[in-house]
Amino acid sequence: MATSDDRRPPLKGTPDAGSRESGAPHPEPSTLRREARLARLALDPQREASLSDDLVRILAAFESLQEVDVSNLEPLHQPLHASLAEPLRHAAPTDPAAAGTSRRDSRLAAPDPTSAVDRARLLEGAPEPIDGHFGVPRTIEQ
């Protein structure tokens, strides 16, 4: 399925390879083909060309991001307000019996390690359950 990629005709409507003087590097068709393969998606040439065009246009529209001075900005990867992870200012002393983790004074709950799922029911939703396991096509030669 992915093996015919290299024989596909070149894509139209995508810019030339490489970085420009300023701004972000633009993706080449071969880059996108490789990324599609990594994402386990097989695209026919027409769809590949159309999606490639979309990506180039979308990223071009976001070029203004490259103008922002980010030198003094730390990346924000989750927006939980800083105060919520800190101990409560006026919290009552935590019940030692309930304290299980180092987070016991914060406003976050201690994780519950018990499983929410039943194995048999979980496997009912799988495409190919075999003897209590997930079945997949053979990956090792006999």
Binding site: A24, A39, L41, Q66, V70
Partner: peptide
């Protein structure tokens, strides 16, 4: 998925994913 795979790819991560996470802070 393709857009997301691209912005996380080597060579593009700094210009897109990392930069976007910093502007998110702003």
């Amino acid at each position: 998925i393709l857009l997301g795979t691209h912005v996380l790819s080597s060579g593009f991560y700094e210009a897109w994913f990392d930069r976007a996470a910093r502007v998110r802070r702003a």
